[in-house]
Design a protein around this nucleic acid. Structure first.
Length: 193
DNA sequence: GTTCTAGAAC
DNA sequence: GTTCTAGAAC
């Protein structure tokens, strides 16, 4: 209680924040009996949603073949929300190899990466290197092996990689340089690149 | 995950 | 002198 103001409810450690966000009407976009979709509190692109199962699944490591149907449903609902948000922009659907926040969540993020909340190399590399694992890849692994194996001890090194444009692979020395470059790319689905 | 900020990089 | 990154936060 010492550090919490009297009118704010303590929600525990910051890594548990997603559970509170799931119930936040400001962030919630959609919900049914199996999952909740919220807007990312600090969106890293024009459109950035999180799809969270209601079932308490701590991480990718907890997944078994029994979760296949749920993961396919999460993916489907993610595609729907992306389509509803913007039909032109390209989106990716996937999971961070080693997420900071507890509770399994699939990112639905438009590939413009045009957002003031996108600030650091870690942000960038977490969405544009192999640290970002496509949902389809997760589902494939689960179908094939009955479990998911991503990340590993070298996962953190991925976040330290040099900054590269995700479209043309051009290298940049710092974030402001990269950010002013990527706004010139069209990240639409099918139109001329 | 973010905020803050010291000191590196420019 | 200003911009930018990177590490601590109990």
């Amino acid at each position: 209680m010492a550090k919490e103001t009297a009118n704010k409810k303590a929600t525990g450690h910051w890594s548990m924040g997603l559970l509170a966000s799931m119930d936040d009407p400001e962030l919630r976009v959609e919900a049914d009996d199996k999952l909740v979709i919220i807007k990312d509190k600090y969106p890293k692109a024009k459109y950035h949603f999180l799809v969270l199962p209601r079932e308490k699944i701590p991480s990718l490591k907890s997944l078994t073949a029994q979760h296949l149907e749920l993961l396919q449903y999460i993916h489907k609902k993610g595609e729907e929300i992306a389509d509803r948000a913007n039909k032109e922009l390209r989106f990716r659907f996937g999971y961070h190899a080693v997420p900071s926040m507890s509770h399994l969540h699939m990112h639905v993020i438009s590939q413009d990466f045009d957002s003031p909340c996108l600030k650091t190399k870690k942000h960038w590399n977490s969405f544009t290197t192999q640290y970002f694992v496509d949902s389809s890849e997760i589902i494939r692994q689960l179908e094939k092996k009955g479990k998911v194996e991503v990340g590993g001890p070298d996962a953190n090194e991925l976040l330290k990689q040099d900054l590269r444009c995700h479209v043309c692979k051009k290298k940049f020395a710092n974030m402001p340089g990269l950010k002013s470059h990527i706004v010139f790319h069209n990240v639409t689905k099918s139109k001329n690149k």
